[in-house]
Design a protein around this nucleic acid. Structure first.
Lengths: 228, 228
DNA sequence: AAAAAATTAGACACACTTGTCTAATTCGTC
DNA sequence: GACGAATTAGACAAGTGTGTCTAATTTTTT
C-alpha cells in the first residue's frame, strides 16, 4: 500500500535493511507468542528497537507484516533444509550412526529450531484463515523436501543398504519417527537438550532400520553390508 | 469470581447445563479459529445462541472461560481415549488387521477429531503463556495413555506376538507412525477422509510390524503366528 | 396464579489498538 | 556545514472489545 523509499548507497541500505530484518525477527517472535490477533504493533516495534512509524514505513499494515514474516521465515527454513539434505549419507560408512547424525542435524536445524517452530505454530493458527499465505511454503517446503528425501532413501535401497517398497512413505515415516519423542516437549515449548535430540534420533533410527534395514543378521544392531 | 446460582430441580438444571455446554462448545470453536487474543465474547455468545451476559454469568471473565473450555475438552478427550484403549487387540486374530482397525479408531476418535485438534492447537498457542492450564491434561492425558498403550504392547510381546525391547518407545513410535501421513492435512485444517485414515493406518502398521513383528517369515505381509 | 430465578437487550465507561499525521531529530552524503 | 532521506516521539481519530449495570422479559418452581 505504501512506497518504501530506496536509499541510493550501500552504507545506508545496510542500516535500512538491518532494521527491516530486525523488525521481521521481532514480529516473528511476537506473532509466535501472542498469535496474530493478540499481537500488538507497539510491542513489535519496541522489541525491534524501532519506532512504530518505522514498522509501518517498512511493511505497511499488520496483515502485510505477517506476509513478510512468513515469506522470510519460509525462505530461511527451506534454505536450511536443503543444506541439511545435502549432508544425507549417500555412501554410508556406518549406516546407523550416519542416519542418527543426519536426523539430529535435521531436527536441530529445520524442525525444532526457532523458525521451524514458528512456522508450524503459525500455520496451525492462521492456516485455515489464510491458506494462500502458506501456499508457497507448502509447494516449496514439505513438497520438495519430502520427495528429495524419498529420492535419497530410494538410492540407498538401490545400492542395497535398505529394503524399501515405497520411498515416499518411508521418508514420511522417517520424519515422523525422528520427531516421536520430541513432539510433547515441543508442544509445551520446552527447550530441547542436545542429549534429548540424540536419544530421540537413536531410538528412531534403530526402529527405522529394524523396518527397512537389510535382513542379514537377525537382531543385533551391527552395520550390515557393502563396504564401498 | 462470581457465584453460579444452583437451581434446585432437574428440569431447570438441564436447561441451565445445556446452555453451559453450548457456551463451552461455541467458545472452543472460536478460541480454536481465532486464538485467545483474537477471540471475541460477543461472537462466542452469538454462536452459542445466548446473550453475552449469560456467558459472564456462567463463566466469569474470558480467562476463566478458557479454563473451563480446556477442562471440559480435556476430560472428554481422555474419556474417549481410554474407551478406545479398551478396544486394543489383546488377543489378536489377524494382528495386522486388528492393529490397523485400532489405529483408525484412535485417530478418528482421539487424535484427529475436533477435540483433539482443538487441544493440540490450544496447547501450542497458549501452552507457553499458561503452563498450569494444561498441567492436568499432561498428567491425566498423554502420560497415562502412553503408558497404558505401552503396557498393551508389552503384553503382546510377552505373548509372543511382537518383539519389543522398550515398550514405551514402541508406543510413542506407534503413535508417531499412525500420524505420519495425517500431520500435513491436519496442520492445514483439511478434512480427513475415511480412506485416508485407513491408508495411513495400514502403511503405519505395516512398518510397525516390519520393525517389531516376529521374525518368522521373511518379507511378505502374512500374519505370523500363534493362533490362540 | 404468584414468586423466584434465569435470561435478554441495550447502554455504558474504560481501556486498548490500529493506522495516520506532524514536527523535531538523527543519520549519511555532498 | 548544508542538504535530503530516514527515523523518532507524540498526538490523534476511529474503531473495537471487555466487563458491568439496569430494566424488561422469559422460564421454572411453589
Amino acid at each position: 500500500m505504501r512506497e518504501i523509499p530506496r536509499p541510493q548507497f550501500d552504507q545506508s541500505l545496510r542500516s535500512h535493511n538491518a532494521k527491516r530484518v530486525s523488525i521481521i525477527d521481532a514480529a516473528a517472535n511476537v506473532f509466535c507468542r501472542e498469535g496474530f490477533g493478540g499481537a500488538n504493533i507497539d510491542l513489535i516495534a519496541a522489541e525491534a528497537g524501532v519506532s512504530r512509524q518505522t514498522v509501518y514505513n517498512h511493511h505497511g499494515d499488520k496483515e502485510n507484516l505477517l506476509s513478510a514474516v512468513v515469506s522470510e521465515i519460509t525462505e530461511r527454513c527451506n534454505a536450511r533444509s536443503f543444506a541439511v539434505l545435502g549432508t544425507f549419507p549417500d555412501h554410508p560408512g556406518d549406516l546407523e550412526a550416519d542416519l542418527v547424525a543426519f536426523a539430529v542435524r535435521l531436527n536441530k536445524n529445520c524442525l525444532c529450531d526457532r523458525d521451524g517452530k514458528f512456522l508450524r505454530k503459525l500455520i496451525q493458527t492462521e492456516g485455515e484463515r489464510n491458506p494462500q499465505l502458506f501456499a508457497s511454503w507448502r509447494n516449496e517446503g514439505p513438497g520438495k523436501i519430502w520427495s528429495a528425501l524419498a529420492a535419497r532413501f530410494a538410492r540407498l535401497a538401490f545400492s542395497g543398504h535398505l529394503e524399501i517398497d515405497d520411498p515416499d512413505a518411508a521418508a514420511r515415516q522417517f520424519l515422523a519417527l525422528i520427531n516421536a519423542d520430541l513432539q510433547l516437549p515441543m508442544l509445551l515449548g520446552e527447550p530441547l537438550g542436545e542429549d534429548q535430540l540424540k536419544a530421540s534420533a537413536t531410538s528412531a533410527v534403530r526402529t527405522f532400520l529394524r523396518a527397512f534395514g537389510r535382513r542379514v543378521a537377525a537382531s543385533s544392531s551391527d552395520a550390515p553390508a557393502i563396504p564401498a
